[in-house]
Amino acid sequence: MIECCDLTLSYDQQPVLKQITLTLGKPGITALIGPNGAGKSTLLSAIARLVKPDSGTVLLDGEPVVGNQTLAKHLAILRQDNHMEARLSVYDLVCFGRYPHSGGRLTDEDLQKVAQAIDYLDLQPLQDRYLDELSGGQRQRAFIAMILAQDTEYILLDEPLNNLDMKHAVSIMKLMQQAARDMHKKIIIVLHDINFASVYADQIIAMKDGQVAYQGTPEEMITEPVMLDLYDLPMQIQQINDKPIAVYHL
């Protein structure tokens, strides 16, 4: 489990996280939703030690995280908007996902995990291409393959569906669901599309103004009053295949 205790963080005196106390990381998919600027990405970054909180602690399985190397074997994070200057091939990129486990010298087990990840994301036809030769969606899939190859218990993804068309967005979510079930991964995903959260998440945590506003199962969360309060936008909730689907486009 990941336990955040009193997590506080400000950028330029603008509070982004306000004393967040939260336990997350149950097996399965946890979706983090909320309006822009709610602090979702910052929370993920603080958990993964990419940003240092002003105060508060994060415990991973009951222990404060010390040492990057250890953390990288247990928790992986993919931020949004990744600009990679380095010109790497897809295959090399995915191989670097194994870096925390064996440095640069890959063992047979590493190579197997790399092949698996490439397989999982349908990247064989692209594996020798350089990242700067790919479209945004293809690149995103390559990054996700790298994170999967890292083979950590916890996976944090910050809006992984950005840049993806509907087909690939659905396939990534199905894949995450499958990874969560088959490999008991604990996946925490920031999602903008609340219907993806409704359909694929086991747990939803909603943030607003740097605080946790609501949390619960999709059935408890995707309701008209909660959505109205969260997004300040009236939505109609309809049941499709037993899942609450929000309609707000009209």
């Binding site: 990419l50 993919l78 380095a86 870096y99």
Partner: peptide
Amino acid sequence: LADRFTVVGMGRDFASNLGLN
């Protein structure tokens, strides 16, 4: 140290994610 420098070249976030100092 080539692999470490490549990882640094991937950017700070990627490098931190991969546990690099």
